[in-house]
Write a protein that binds this DNA or RNA. Structure first.
Length: 433
RNA sequence: UCCUCGAUAGCUCAGCUGGCAGAGCAACGGACUGUUAAUCCGUGGGUCCCUGGUUCGAACCCAGGUCGAGGAGCCA
């Protein structure tokens, strides 16, 4: 095949004769004129097929082309103000590659259930392409952020022998003669081991939760990025989370302002407000604020969706809630030495009701305390021997957090449901396509 | 797991008090030289989610089930 020319680079081809390959996104036809909207993955260009300019078989091919047929069009690129792109192609020849009639997705309204069934095709539509593109950038910006600051990416296993927490939310798989393995819920414990090796580590991978959750914020398979830093306390952790969010949101917005504003119709002023400092309140203060807003909640309760929303509405940027009751947090959280009732954890809640996007905190670094926490929660001690070793051979204060990629992307793109933020979402009641 | 709503053409839906299965869009055929969800004319297209019940007669009423959507709980 010739050197591939892409729609994204079409301005450089003005006046030239080129060949584009792609798919027929839409078509409007006249008697001796067809307007083909050709997309190639980088953009959409209108290809004008005039009967007098092309061989008869090419004109017939244009006539018979169906939505999403693959094709190859050759012609001259000309400037045209009537086109959204600014350019169009005057076609001199056209070859239909493949494509049957009956492409199921129309540029009209569809129900979400139908679209989810057609997810493999739905990805081709403008909105989904925009989301894929923003997702790609967000992930790149996350990796760049850590790379630029001396973090080392350390991959954690997906098959694990035990749970971080309760077993009810684990996916179980058979594992040879060793019995059962589980799909990871978090790479954090391994991230801690990594931080003791490289100082600043981050884990980035898919995680799995068998939660029977049917909400706009839950997937059973989602991606999480988890930095973990040696010699960092909770204050440092919050500063890192804040700086990290400001950077990744800022960079992603800078690159995709146009798509966010036009294709996704996102009000980006809300994203522009993501600047330091984020408000920092303790769990106790949050409870008081929620009570003051008229919601019944008592100290010791976890926040539900309603409580989160009430709290977030009081701020115009992400809010950091720290020092949750110890009982609400996992065994590995360090307790506040000034108040053992609370743990040195922090959650970051995104504004506009997008909910918790970060959870993290300072880890327990004392061997005996951690061992007794494991016993208290009736976790199998032998499974955590390796984790306890980290407190035996050069234990240091350390902290980290986990950021949910899909929730963050859903927030940036303004998506009503996280299912659109991942190419092939896995939900409690959906495993296909 | 619980609550609410829904399932009728490829899609989005209407179908009144139980009495012949409908519309728009899409598809297909035709007309049209500047269309932007083009327009105009025509054609084809149904397991009314499934099973059972009530009835002279069920898309419609009843029971059970399946699937989908929204919400709750759950959820670092």
């Amino acid at each position: 095949m010739d050197k591939q020319i892409y729609v994204a680079d079409i301005a450089a081809e003005e006046g030239k004769q080129v060949t584009l390959r792609g798919w027929l996104y839409g078509k409007r036809s006249g008697g001796k004129l067809h307007f083909l909207q050709v997309r190639d993955g980088t953009g959409v260009i209108q290809a004008v097929v005039s009967k007098k300019d092309v061989p008869p078989e090419a004109f017939a091919a244009a006539e018979g082309a169906h939505q999403e047929s693959s094709l190859e069009v050759s012609g001259t690129i000309v400037k045209d103000t009537r086109s959204a792109l600014g350019f169009e192609m005057h076609v001199s020849d056209l070859r239909l590659l493949q494509g049957e009639a009956g492409y199921p997705i129309q540029p009209k309204e569809h129900g979400i259930g139908f679209l989810m069934e057609q997810r493999h095709l739905w990805l081709r539509s403008a909105r989904q392409r925009a989301i894929l593109s923003v997702r790609h950038s967000l992930i790149k910006n996350i990796r760049d952020y850590f790379d630029e600051r001396g973090f080392t990416l350390v991959d954690s296993p997906i098959l694990t022998p035990t749970a971080c927490e309760g077993t009810s939310t684990l996916f179980e798989v058979p594992y040879f003669d060793l019995g059962k393995a589980y799909l990871t819920q978090s790479g954090q414990l391994y991230g801690e081991a990594a931080a003791m090796a490289v100082g600043k580590a981050y884990v980035f991978g898919p995680t799995f939760r068998a939660e029977k959750s049917k909400t706009r914020r839950h997937l059973t398979e989602f991606w999480m990025v988890e930095p973990e830093v040696a010699f960092m306390d909770l204050e440092g952790d919050m500063a890192l989370a804040e700086d990290f969010l400001v950077e990744i949101v800022g960079r992603t917005l800078a690159k995709h302002r146009h798509e966010l504003t036009t294709v996704l119709e996102r009000d980006v002023t809300a994203l522009e407000r993501v600047q330091k400092p984020f408000p920092r309140i303790t769990y106790t203060e949050a409870v008081e604020a929620i009570q003051k807003a008229g919601h019944p909640i008592t100290w010791g309760d976890d926040f539900g969706g309603d409580e989160e929303t009430v709290l977030c509405k009081q701020y115009d940027r992400p809010v950091m809630v720290h020092r949750y009751p110890t009982d609400l947090k996992a065994f590995y959280f360090k307790r506040d030495p000034n108040d053992p009732k609370v743990a040195l954890g922090v959650d970051v809640l995104a504004p506009e009701g997008f909910g918790e996007i970060i959870g993290g905190g300072q880890r327990e670094d004392d061997y005996a305390t951690l061992a007794s926490r494991i016993d208290e929660q009736k976790l199998p001690r032998e499974a955590f021997n390796w984790y306890l070793d980290l407190r035996k051979y050069g234990s240091v204060p350390h902290s980290g957090f986990g950021l949910g990629v899909e929730r963050t992307l859903g927030w940036i793109c303004g998506l009503p449901h996280v299912r659109e933020s991942i190419p092939f979402p896995r939900l409690m009641e959906r495993l296909t396509p």
